[in-house]
């Protein structure tokens, strides 16, 4: 549940994400580009998709179940966003999200039309 300081933005329908495996969108409200993907265990994850190295585009490598940069092939952990290519402190910023009308785990029917929302705090 989101509190009264938080706002939510629609990312995509779960059915679309299941079909595409990952979605990349730029949000003006956040001034950030995000990647929403389903990992191998079918968990939804949302991270910034701007590589902290030089700003390259991050995509989800389904085969290896990790995030990778299109510019320099840097790899990032799909769970934490931590850089796996070099022992650096940088990583991809994770975002909170929710699936409406209820949490994903509580559903067992009609999941396709469920909507995924990114949650953020307005400054």
């Amino acid at each position: 549940m989101i509190n009264n300081k938080q706002f939510s933005i629609f990312i995509c329908k779960l059915g679309v994400l299941k079909k595409k495996k990952y979605i990349i969108k730029f949000f003006d409200e956040l001034k950030d580009e995000i990647i929403c993907f389903l990992d191998k265990e079918e968990n939804i994850k949302v991270f910034s998709s701007i590589c902290p190295h030089f700003g390259g585009e991050i995509f989800y490598d389904q085969k290896k179940d990790l995030l990778r940069c299109k510019w320099h092939n840097w790899k990032f952990c799909n769970k934490t966003g931590k850089c796996l290519s070099y022992p650096l402190k940088l990583g991809l910023n994770p975002y909170e999200f929710e699936v409406k009308p209820d949490k994903l785990k509580e559903y067992n029917i009609n999941l396709e039309n469920d909507k995924i929302f990114l949650i953020y705090e307005r400054e």
Binding site: L30, D32, S48, F54, L88, N93
Partner: peptide, 21 residues
């Protein structure tokens, strides 16, 4: 894309500023 992120105050090896503003 590089121009776009530079215009958003992106810093190499750091990323975007933590504050959206």
């Amino acid at each position: 894309r590089r121009q776009k992120v530079v215009d958003m105050n992106f810093k190499d090896f750091k990323g975007l500023p933590s504050k959206i503003s």
